[in-house]
């Protein structure tokens, strides 16, 4: 195996990991703030990809240009969904909301099937196959674009959570919802917006996945699992940890694919996930409780 192939694979693993981190971030903040395991997270991601497909065919808009629009659409859809289905279950234990998201994931999968058939789709663009070369190392250009966009969004979410007044409300709601309400935080609104933010992260990641690779109505499940692995690896509630864990997982998946063959990508990631759970249950960057 030549140095070029190994280096190209490692670099594309890093870049791909950035995109995975963005998808996982959506899962992580919903889990951290709302204590909700959103089993529909993968389908929300796929919904973003279909959304880009439809917008592209209707308006001819470049999917990367349409990203803010797609994110906004997802917020507009996800926030009422949360208020309608999940908010009434608050205070009824952790299982009911989780099972609700499972139902939502099944319904979405079937809606995709009805609307778009089971065909494998891809958001074809000129740059999806175009290479990006640094000397002998070559990676797909969309990986570079996807990485830059993902890290940019993750950075923006970091600033939103740690520097803004909304972020303060969000952190307080995560730590102690009752005390947060007692100092005037509208916890229900924070939860709804957090869910919207999580959906927007997933959908944006879904568009990038749709351009770089392909998707079907059931693609979401694999990304949900990968996202869980990243959240656990990075430690719940750590945005920086999520980014690093995403990149680590991306690189390990690349190495796994290189050494064992492409079909072993997800397996390698999940084995790592179990290993980390066994050794460091709070994640690499998580706080022990």
């Amino acid at each position: 195996m030549s140095f070029e192939i190994i280096a190209s694979n490692l670099l594309s693993g890093v870049l791909w990991g950035g995109i995975l981190a963005l998808i996982a971030l959506g899962l992580s903040i919903v889990l951290g703030v709302m204590r909700l395991i959103n089993l529909a997270h993968g389908e929300i991601m796929v919904a973003g990809a279909y959304c880009a497909l439809v917008i592209g065919s209707l308006t001819g808009l470049d999917p990367l240009i349409a990203l803010p629009l797609i994110a906004a659409i997802m917020v507009v859809v996800a926030v009422p969904l949360q208020q309608l289905l999940l908010a009434p279950l608050a205070g009824k234990g952790a299982e009911a909301p989780m099972m609700t998201t499972f139902a939502v994931s099944l319904i979405l999968q079937n809606l995709f099937l009805v609307g778009f058939s089971a065909d494998t789709r891809s958001i074809g663009q000129g740059y999806s196959t175009q290479p990006f070369s640094i000397g002998p190392i070559s990676v797909p250009l969309i990986y570079v674009l996807g990485f830059v966009i993902s890290v940019g969004i993750i950075g923006a979410v970091y600033l939103l959570v740690n520097r803004s007044a909304f972020g303060r409300d969000l952190r307080a709601s995560a730590l102690d919802p009752v005390a947060a309400a007692s100092v005037g935080v509208n916890v229900r609104r924070v939860h709804a917006l957090t869910f919207g933010l999580g959906a927007a992260c997933a959908a944006t990641g879904g568009v990038l996945v749709g351009i770089a690779l392909s998707f079907t109505p059931t693609t979401g499940a694999a990304y949900l699992l990968t996202s869980f692995a990243i959240v656990v690896l990075g430690g719940m509630g750590s945005i920086f940890g999520t980014l690093v864990a995403g990149i680590v997982l991306g690189v390990i998946q690349s190495i796994g694919a290189l050494v064992l063959g492409d079909g072993f990508r997800d397996l390698v990631g999940l084995v790592l996930f179990l290993a980390v759970l066994a050794v460091r249950p709070a994640g690499l960057f998580g706080r022990r409780t």
Partner: peptide, 15 residues
């Protein structure tokens, strides 16, 4: 019921 992972000033500002 102080928010443990917010700073003193953030704990005040949130109100």
């Amino acid at each position: 019921r102080i928010f443990p992972e917010l700073t003193v000033e953030e704990n005040l500002k949130i109100a």
